[in-house]
Structure formats: C-alpha cells, structure tokens
Simulated scan of single mutants.
Amino acid sequence: MLENSLVMVTIILVINIVYVSFFTIRMILTLKGQRYTAAAISTVEVVIYVVGLGLVLDNLNQIQNLIAYALGYGIGVIVGTKIEDKLALGYITVHVITKEYDRDLPRILREKGYGVTSWAANGLEGDRMALQILTPRKFELRLYETIKEQDPKAFIIAYEPKTIYGGFWVKNVKKGKLFRNEQKNKEKNI
C-alpha cells in the first residue's frame, strides 16, 4: 500500500513539473509572438494537465497527492524558467552610458557583430557617450563582459523590444556575424 502511494506521489509530481514547464515555455513563446509554436506546445501541455489533474481528483482523499501536485507546480515554474533561460529566445536592447566619451567602444562592439547606435551625451560630471545596442539574448552576458572590460563604471540598462523592423543590423543577424563570432570563440576555447 505504501509503495503504491509513493509511486502515485512521484507520478503526480513529475507530471506537474512537466506540465508547468510546458506552460511556462508556452507563455513566453506567446509573449514573443511565436504563436504557432506556442499552440503546438499547448496541445501537449493540455494532455499532460488532464492526466495529472485526473490522478489527483481520482485520489482526492490522499492528501499527499494534493501536496505532490502543488509541489510539482512550484518546481515546474522554476524548471520552465531555467529552460527558457537556456533557450534565450528573442532579443534585448541595451542602453549604455559610459564614464567618459570613448570612441573605441562602439567600434569594438560593432566588430564583434553587435548592432550599435552611439551619440554624445552630457552627464552630471561631464561628457559621456550613450549607446543603444541590439543583440540576441543568448549573447547578452558576453555583451556585458565586453562593455565592462572597456568601461568598468559604465551604466547599463536592458529591456526586451517587442518589435524589430528594418535597419542595418537586422540584415547582419540574418547573415550570422554574431553566430560566426560565437563559433570562433568556441574554437579558441577548445
């Protein structure tokens, strides 16, 4: 009897982790405008949901099943967001304000394949450079490292744009300059 209860708790826990992971990824895809992929995922998601909920409702007198369901839900949120972090879907726009006016930073970033628009700015303590940089999310951390190497005191703020249209950089992304740079870096590390 105890062994069957443990098996049921484990099944419910795993089903809910998988269900909520799918749910989280589907929601993120929906927000990023990938509605057809999100719809395909939701088809699988709803089957998993119905099976898991059915197991709990059929055995509602067993409190451990309800606890497993709730615990699986919480763990599923964490797993789903970790998966999305690894997938790094979409793009980010990064605004940078340098400590001092630095003509080299935009050039260095462009050579690495980032889309950069820069202009002169004036802060409380004098001349600065403001940059707006567009990059796929998967290159976000490397971008921050490059900026901090050049200007450790740079002010950096990032957000996700909803729509990207036109511009020189969009064509370069399709040509894969950033992705080629990624491959070169991997080859150097081997």
Rank of each mutant, 00 (worst) to 15 (best):
residue 121 A to H: 13
residue 117 T to Y: 15
residue 26 R to E: 00
residue 12 I to W: 05
residue 44 V to Q: 07
residue 16 N to M: 15
residue 34 Q to C: 01
residue 84 E to R: 11
residue 134 L to F: 06
residue 119 W to T: 12
residue 62 Q to V: 11
residue 56 V to T: 06
residue 81 T to P: 07
residue 140 E to R: 12
residue 110 R to D: 01
residue 4 N to F: 08
residue 84 E to I: 03
residue 174 K to T: 15
residue 87 L to Y: 05
residue 137 R to E: 00
residue 8 M to C: 03
residue 106 P to Y: 04
residue 117 T to G: 10
residue 152 P to Q: 00
residue 11 I to G: 03
residue 176 G to T: 07
residue 53 L to Q: 03
residue 104 D to V: 08
residue 163 T to L: 09
residue 4 N to L: 09
residue 9 V to L: 02
residue 39 A to M: 02
residue 22 F to M: 10
residue 3 E to G: 15
residue 16 N to H: 14
residue 111 E to I: 06
residue 113 G to V: 07
residue 107 R to T: 13
residue 52 G to F: 07
residue 113 G to W: 09
residue 107 R to A: 14
residue 83 I to A: 02
residue 84 E to L: 08
residue 31 L to G: 05
residue 54 G to D: 03
residue 186 K to N: 12
residue 89 L to I: 04
residue 22 F to S: 06
residue 160 E to A: 13
residue 187 E to C: 14
residue 16 N to K: 10
residue 188 K to N: 02
residue 141 L to R: 15
residue 86 K to Y: 14
residue 71 L to D: 01
residue 116 V to A: 02
residue 86 K to T: 12
residue 12 I to T: 05
residue 180 R to W: 13
residue 25 I to S: 02
residue 118 S to H: 03
residue 22 F to D: 07
residue 130 A to E: 02
residue 65 N to Q: 04
residue 7 V to M: 07
residue 65 N to R: 03
residue 72 G to R: 05
residue 103 R to M: 09
residue 111 E to M: 13
residue 119 W to Y: 10
residue 174 K to I: 15
residue 106 P to E: 06
residue 178 L to D: 02
residue 43 T to I: 04
residue 1 M to F: 13
residue 72 G to P: 03
residue 88 A to S: 06
residue 66 L to K: 06
residue 179 F to Y: 12
residue 93 T to V: 14
residue 51 V to L: 11
residue 157 I to D: 08
residue 169 W to E: 03
